[in-house]
Structures are given as structure tokens and as C-alpha cells.
């Protein structure tokens, strides 16, 4: 029995196909569901074990990246999502998915009426940029998606990926991934930290480790020949991002 995985689609979602492919390669049984189907009650989040919000420009990223889908999820599916987390489900937000989860107050979770403490905003460079970045994983993180991962090389492609938070709450964000240079130096600066994120944070999770979001795209590096330098360095069978999907499926299998 394959792990039932829901990939959310909304107007402007555009990484759902390759994200589904990555999860299927990792052994998941994937269904791609339009947000309207969830809202109309034709599909239920509770029937799935993994819930993925993939990359894209939902609702054009008008107002701010991910804001309008965040608003919709919070207001129309907030209770279902809270229950899904309580029941032990896994949530993964990639790029726009991260922006949505953060702005919906799902990651970090915010009770109603509590003002958010972090957001994702315009890159310091002032532009959308597509480039490859080195990442180091926080070995103390409870994140179930990054178990066994120390370093990764993944592409980013975003214009609003800068983590901004009150410096006081920065340590409470449960950073999972940091931008580094090729030697692992976290303080290497732009373009290694491609957006100017505070604390060089590229991804965060919740206290359970089961809700995880990141700006880089693991689904774009699941085979070795997606690596930008494979023609010179040789192609490994799997790309660095694949382990994230395998970890998710392995964990969810045990549920």
C-alpha cells in the first residue's frame, strides 16, 4: 500500500508535476488536488498522510508571494490542517509552499489573533533569481524530512525568499537548513545566501519535525544529471533532493 500523498494545486501552482514525480519515485501514491476540491469537500485532507504545497506563483503572488492562497487556506481549511498535523500527518512546503505556510500562520503555527513573527519578503538583490545554492542541515533539528542529510546542493528560483523575523524569535524558528558556500561556511553572504535571509535560514520546521518548508527546490535535484556540473563531475544516480522525499515516505509508511 503506497503512502497516500496529496499535492495541492491552486491557480498559479506550477511545480506540481515534478514534485509528484519525485514523490512517486520515492514510493508515494500521489493525488494532485485543486484547492477548490478541498474547499467544496469533494476531497478530504484527513484521507492522506503527506500534504505537499509545491512551488509556483499562486494567484500571481499578487499582494505578496503566497498571501492569497495563505488567506484562503487559513480561513477555509485551517481547522482541517490543524487536525491533520495533530493526527501525525506530514506537511511539506516548497518555495511558494513555504511562503503560503508562513503567511497562513501554519508554520510557525499561530493561534487565531496572534500576530505573525516571521515572513518571507523581497530578496535583497531586488530581483527574482534562479541559481544553485549549498545548504547545510541543522543536525539538532527534529525535522523528519532531513534525517541523515548533512549537506545539499539545490536550485532556488524566487524573488521573495528572504526570511525576516524579529531577531529575538529567530532562534525559535527551528531552522532546518542554512545557506552556505561550497565549503559549508554559513557566513559567506550573497550570492551563497541568495536572498539575504536572516540567520542564513533556508528552511524551517515545527516542533514535531513533521511540518517542514524550504525555499530551495529539492524536486529539481532528484537525479544526478540535474546537477549543473554533471558533464564534468559525473552524474550520481540520485540528486541531493531525493532523500527529502524518501524520508517523508519512509516516515509516513510507519504511521
Amino acid at each position: 500500500m503506497k503512502v497516500k500523498t496529496l499535492i495541492l494545486r491552486a491557480p498559479g501552482t506550477n511545480c506540481n508535476v515534478e514534485t509528484a514525480f519525485a514523490l512517486e519515485q520515492a514510493g508515494a501514491g500521489v493525488t494532485t488536488i485543486h484547492v477548490n476540491q478541498l474547499i467544496r469537500g469533494e476531497e478530504r485532507l484527513a484521507d492522506y498522510r503527506i500534504f505537499v504545497i509545491p512551488g509556483g506563483f499562486t494567484y500571481g503572488d499578487d499582494i505578496a508571494a503566497g498571501k492569497v492562497l495563505a488567506n484562503e487556506l487559513r480561513l477555509k481549511l485551517g481547522a482541517d490542517i490543524q487536525q491533520f498535523i495533530a493526527d501525525g500527518g506530514l506537511i511539506l512546503g516548497i518555495c511558494n509552499g513555504f511562503q503560503v505556510l508562513a503567511k497562513a500562520g501554519i508554520l510557525p503555527w499561530l493561534p487565531d489573533g496572534v500576530a505573525p513573527v516571521m515572513t518571507l519578503t523581497n530578496n535583497d538583490s531586488g530581483k527574482f533569481e534562479c541559481r544553485w545554492v549549498y545548504l547545510a542541515a541543522n543536525e539538532k533539528s527534529p525535522c523528519v524530512f532531513t534525517r541523515g542529510i548533512e549537506r545539499m546542493y539545490l536550485p532556488v528560483a524566487h524573488g521573495e525568499g528572504k526570511v525576516v523575523a524579529d531577531p529575538k524569535v529567530l532562534p525559535e524558528l527551528n531552522a532546518v537548513l542554512y545557506y552556505t558556500d561550497e565549503h559549508g561556511d554559513r557566513l559567506a553572504g550573497y550570492p551563497h545566501n541568495p536572498n539575504g535571509s536572516m540567520g542564513n535560514i533556508a528552511g524551517i520546521c515545527d516542533a514535531t519535525g513533521r511540518v517542514f518548508a524550504l525555499m530551495p527546490h529539492p524536486e529539481r535535484h532528484i537525479r544526478g544529471s540535474q546537477h549543473p556540473r554533471w558533464p564534468g563531475e559525473g552524474a550520481k544516480e540520485f540528486g541531493d533532493g531525493f532523500q527529502i522525499f524518501r524520508n517523508a515516505v519512509d516516515w509516513a509508511k510507519k504511521l
Binding site: V17, F21, A22, G55, E129, C130, A157, I222, Q226
Partner: peptide, 11 residues
């Protein structure tokens, strides 16, 4: 760099 040349995962 300001174009996404990785989306769709086929690169």
C-alpha cells in the same frame, strides 16, 4: 538568472 530555467524538472 532572472528566468526560471529549472522549473518542470527536465533540465
Amino acid at each position: 538568472r532572472q528566468y526560471d530555467h529549472e522549473v518542470q524538472g527536465g533540465s
